[in-house]
Design a protein around this nucleic acid. Sequence first.
RNA 1: GCAGGCGUGGUGAAAUUGGUAGACACGCCAGACUUAGGAUCUGGUGGCGCAAGCUGUGAGAGUUCGAGUCUCUCCGCCUGCACCA
Length: 827
Amino acid sequence: MSGKARYNGKESFAEWQKEWALEDRYNFRTIEDKWQKIWDDEKAYKVEIDKSKEKFYALVEFPYPSGAGLHVGHPRSYTALDVIARKKRMQGFNVLYPMGFDAFGLPAENYAIKTGVHPAVSTKANIETFTRQLKSLGFSFDWDRCISTCDPEYYKWTQWMFIKLFEKGLAYKDKIAINWCPSCKVGLANEEVVNGCCERCGAQVVRKDKEQWMVAITKYADRLIDDLDDLDFIDRVKSQQVNWIGRSEGAELDFELCGEDGTALKKKMKVFTTRPDTAFGVTYMVMAPEHKLVSELVSKFSNADEVQAYVAETAKKSDLQRTMDDSKTGVELKGIKARNPFNNTLIPVFISDYVLTGYGTGAIMAVPAHDQRDYDFAKKFNLPIIQVLEGGDISEKAWEEDGAHINSGFMNGMNKEDGMRAAIDYATKNGFGNSKINYKLRDWVFSRQRYWGEPIPMVYCEHCGWQPIPESELPLTLPEVPDYHPNDEGESPLSKAGAWLETTCPKCGGKARRETDTMPNWAGSSWYFLRYCDPHNDKEFASKEALEYWMPVDWYNGGMEHTTLHLLYSRFWHKFLYDCGLVPTKEPYCKRTSHGMILASNGEKMSKSRGNVVNPDDIVAAYGADTFRLYEMFIGPFDQVAMWSEESLMGVYRFVGKVFALFKKVMKDVKPSDKDLRAMHKCIKEVTERIDQMKFNTAVSALMSYVNYLSDKQEIAPELYETLIKLLCPFTPHLAEEMWARMGHNTLAVKESWPQFVKELAEDNVVTIAVQLNGKMRGTIEMPKDAAKDEVEKAAFALENVQRQTEGKEIRKVIVVPNKIVNIVAA
RNA sequence: GCAGGCGUGGUGAAAUUGGUAGACACGCCAGACUUAGGAUCUGGUGGCGCAAGCUGUGAGAGUUCGAGUCUCUCCGCCUGCACCA
């Protein structure tokens, strides 16, 4: 550390202090610039492995460096974990709190298409802006560990891990429907489809099958559910992940298809059902319009034209539109029937878009009496409804509760459990079905026909099929391309990369062609927390030593919107690496919390188009980083949405100014009174506990109450003020540093130790007890803490109000809750 | 549609997890002060009422000595839905 920087060019600390004494206005600009520079010069937040200390790994979701710059929502999460990281550091932990950039993505590419600016150029500029903005807020990131997913030294390892997935059979190619704009001839992201039309040209978007790289996350479905048990994730994250994976137990059953007259077509229609026991109530069957049996059997349909028209119509709808639509549509496949294997009846077969190809087998047996969607469909198409579970009235709606089986042959009288078992046994014995576990979770579509992403390190050889490129050729860097549009077949812009495409097969040495698809954003963000542990390693993605010291992440905070995608993908990815013996823990994150969004003052989302965006730069310029940080912590409950309010921010600004001004009342020789110490210890206790619980808003309230208490005093003992500085340090580090120095210290406040509270002093020795009569408040009594029950009761009855209102009444019961309440029940 | 969440003064909210509803702020009202500042300080501020008191946590019911908190029904709002990240 350089004395020059510390004393701002002055020879001695005393000289510098003298200069301050003249300045009694809170000048955040000078203070913040000064301390940011000192922290930077001294690398105050640089962290290394130190086995003598307990580690703490705090992580926030790294941002996508958009052209719009930092949003006021970003610092909510970053400040929160900065507060936690700083407190942990003061408590003696070796804290890793890193930051980086999730830098590949669609917006940079669209910007390139529009302007011709290479995504690497615009991304670099955006990262610089973000870095400047983040640094202006005084976060305690170890900037030496900053990473970017678009850096070849980083994505080398993303590609390396993909090859591992391929080698273990978890990456494969499959046909998947994409959004296709027939006019632009491009595949569109969901976000680029507006009301079923192309965002750029307005043409009707259709679904089109395309070969894509897939990753078999479903193979990990059970472990992704089961291992949640041992994790400290907030409940709504856990339940949302469990529901997203959507495990359900049931059966797969085969229904024979036949002609109208019952002649077998030698085709089976496989369905998944969670209620095979209701099979006697099946009155029709439904396939998704894309189901392959539809095209295979098209010659058998007497209404083939109608069927094909419906299939074409369905291609225009997304899965989301299909499930959201209430009105059931569909077409009967005239000319064929299905045979119910349980009772041999022939039933009609339909196609309808309420059945999706992606879930189960893409076909269902419909039980209209006991499923509302089937019921609606049956009513619309005048299909029979047969009740097989006792209990409800099915004249108006489906009966979706349980009941004993009726009209169900061998299952009659059985409950759900027995019925399920009997139905599956029957199906197994007769060879038309078996029990089956199904998931809503689908395998991960890993291909993008885009430029600005990691190239998929695979080559295709006529003889050997798909082969990964040798490790020595990694990273496979993005080639330059003449333009960033996909080609007319919708192939990635990389298909125009000329000579880059041609290579040799790593297996047979023959001619081979490179994969032109790139990876999705989620790839790079699936393992970035591992790279932070050892970001400059060029031999491995991170050393074993670094991983064993730093992993797992102790506390990970991020948005709810990432719960089902990023958070699940990265848990899966990590488990895969664990299975390969590459990481020491089976889960990446011990604790996961989530912050609420910050909305504009009118409750709307902040957006450029609405013109209600608050730029963090303006706030820092007008009020300073400390006020900004403290306001974001005070704005409301951390896990809920909050509305931006410059008036509330002003209140916080006043508070910060008050803390600054309070310094003048600090007198060297004043000793704290017992009451002072109680106030101080209470504040330490509340701030300490509330930070751990992420109740930042009430932690700030506690600080405000303490400052109000100190403000009422004429003279303040140094101990009281220094404790305040330390407690404020995680929230307003610049101010804390400044006041710490003004108190005459030449150490850094951020490296001081966190104050401890004495339990006895943090609690009041006199308590106010509420006195109720029949549950209604009638007054309060002051009692020493833990006073005897009968003493409390006596004092309660002594209240004038109580005497008056109990006069002539019978006292039936007196409830005394120690230190809290006395309730007298009288009549 | 499915899934998760939220609902308390004029506003943001708090409530030791079943025990004094509205802490801490914003705003507002009244007053003080003057280096006229984005001031600062003091007092007040859920509603009705002169008061005693009554009433009050989206609506309705229930459990309890006691419910913002637990249970059920209903209403409203927000978020996500797999190629935005």
